[in-house]
């Protein structure tokens, strides 16, 4: 067991609480406001073979999703960082443990998300022409 004396981190805890609250308030504010310039993608997909595909890949977050949603996901990741690093004290663990947990989860989750969302949008594109909307 660790026996060395711990200094109190109370100040840092309240600071992190302030940051998390502020981010949540910003999220709720934008969730209600929904400003028009963030509601549709800023760029349209590039045409033209290989380089177009590369461009779509690199700038995908500005082409395929609403900037508002990207903004929300970014804020969520920031919140997750503060919770894991300062509430769960990940910053005090060894580099090995930190990487075993954080890198594993990030890699697998990003991979799974990419596969499932690509598949979902493909299936959606494939079936939506067959859904009847005129009666």
């Amino acid at each position: 067991m660790t026996t060395h004396a711990h200094e109190s981190h109370t100040g840092r805890i309240w600071k992190v609480f302030g940051i998390l609250s502020l981010i949540t308030i910003i999220e709720v504010f934008f969730g209600i406001w929904k400003p028009g310039f963030l509601m549709s993608p800023w760029l349209s997909p590039f045409e033209g073979g290989f380089f177009g595909a590369i461009g779509n890949f690199i700038l995908g977050i500005f082409i395929y999703i609403k900037p508002l949603n990207f903004f929300f996901i970014a804020l969520t990741v920031v919140k997750a960082y503060y919770i894991v690093w300062f509430f769960m004290h990940m910053s005090e663990e060894t580099k090995g443990l930190r990487r075993a947990v954080v890198w594993t989860s990030i890699f697998l989750i990003v991979y799974l998300t990419a596969l499932l969302l690509i598949e979902g949008s493909y299936v959606g594109d494939a079936i939506s022409p067959y859904v009847k909307w005129d009666y």
Partner: peptide, 20 residues
């Protein structure tokens, strides 16, 4: 976390499928 991400990405799949 991986279990939850499985659920949430499955939700994402359905959402992209029925995005309209």
């Amino acid at each position: 976390a991986l279990t939850f991400s499985g659920f949430l990405t499955a939700y994402g799949l359905m959402r992209f499928k029925f995005s309209d």
